[in-house]
Structures are given as C-alpha cells and as structure tokens.
C-alpha cells in the first residue's frame, strides 16, 4: 500500500513538472488578460481577419547580446483565433505561427532578417539599422492570418498571441528551467457581425 501511494505521488510530481508551462498558459487564458508587453488587435476586413501585435520588450538585453554574438535569434508568435466557452476551455477556431529571425554578421555588420507565416517565408532582408531590426522582430501590422469564412456571424471571438524567443538565455535555478516562459497577449473580444463588418 505504501509503495503504491509513493509511486502515485512520484508520478504526479513528474507529470506536474512536465505539464507546468501549458497549465500556466491555460490559467492566463481569457480576453483582456495576458502580459502587458504584448499588445494584440484584430480587424476583420475584406474577408480576412487582420491581426496586429507588438511585443514592447521583445528585444531584451539578453536577446540583443545573443544577436550581437552572431547567434540567430528568433521570436515565435503563436496566434490563435479562439471562441470563448462558458463552462469549458475556450475553443481554438484557427491558429497560425509567425516567426521573425535575425542573424547579425559581425564581419559585414549587417543583419539578415527573415520572417515566416505558417512556414511560408517572405523575402529576406539585409539591414544595418538596429531600430529596423527591433521593429522586424517585435512589430507586426495587419497580418492576414485568418479568413473570416471560419467565423460565424454574431459569435464572440478573441485573438490570443503567445510569444517566446530563442535562444532562451535568462537564468533561473540551474535544475529548474521551467520558469522562463514566453509572453501572452489577447486582443479584445469582438462579435463577428458578418462579411466586411468587423
């Protein structure tokens, strides 16, 4: 009996440790919440749901140092179109993954910038302007990520964005790396009234 109880406690602890990050995200879910640094807006127009988001403190000192050291730095944004549920977890209608990557060449002193949306790459760019690098990594304006055909009229939706940067460099307890999650932001809830009336 004692052996079984201790085994159950052990299994629960391991499971809890492994599932800690997603549980934390679920706890924060809900329109209007999330981290202050990640601002999200959504606009339905021309059959598309245009999502804009900016990560205010996305280019942290650690990430800047990583970029300067020549490491490729990527910020990944997981954008989810969600429908609130009263008695259960909110449902995800659609999701898209947006990545912005920068790599700095210390020889030419140029930043190579690239972005992908759901794996589809845009034309890479080269710049020496650090402000442009910051904007490239942290500001996204009116990305046509979702089609309004996925939305039902008169239903309430919201957009949730989770952002996390790689490489993850901030410290914590050396044997407890799970304290360094990303940031989460939510667009205000909106009621989809129909085509082109967002």
């Amino acid at each position: 009996m004692i052996r079984r109880a201790l085994l159950a406690v052990l299994a629960a602890a391991v499971l809890g440790a492994c599932s800690a990050p997603p549980l934390r995200v679920y706890a924060l879910s809900g329109a209007g919440g999330g981290d202050e640094g990640l601002r999200v807006t959504a606009l339905a127009k021309d059959g598309q749901l245009l999502v804009s988001f900016s990560l205010a403190d996305g280019l942290t000192r650690e990430l800047r140092q990583a970029i300067d050291s020549g490491l490729p730095a990527t910020i990944t944004y997981v954008v989810e179109l969600r429908r609130p549920a009263a008695l259960w977890f909110d449902g995800t209608v659609a999701s898209a993954t947006v990545t912005a990557t920068v790599r700095f060449d210390n020889l030419t002193r140029q930043h190579q910038l690239s972005r992908t949306i759901d794996g589809r790459g845009e034309e890479p760019r080269v710049t020496e302007d650090e402000e442009e690098v910051r904007r490239w990594l942290t500001e996204f304006d009116r990305l046509p990520l979702f089609s309004t055909a996925q939305l039902e009229p008169n239903m309430v939706y919201y957009v949730k964005v989770r952002a996390h940067a790689r490489p993850r460099l901030s410290g914590g307890l050396f044997f407890w790396p799970w304290g360094r999650g990303g940031k989460t932001g939510f667009a205000p809830r909106f009621t989809y009234l129909g085509d082109d009336r967002g």
């Binding site: 406690v9 602890a13 391991v14 490491l71 490489p167 993850r168 044997f175 799970w178």
Partner: peptide
C-alpha cells in the same frame, strides 16, 4: 543554443527531478 536550452537542460532537469523523487 536551442538544443541546449530546449532539450538538454530540460532532459537533465527531468532526470534530476526524477532521481530526487
């Protein structure tokens, strides 16, 4: 770095936690 921070560190931490338990 991604391999180190996304896999190795987690794997070692899980191994440590498991052994502590």
């Amino acid at each position: 770095p991604d391999f180190l921070t996304e896999f190795v560190l987690y794997a070692l931490s899980v191994a440590d936690l498991t052994m502590i338990l």
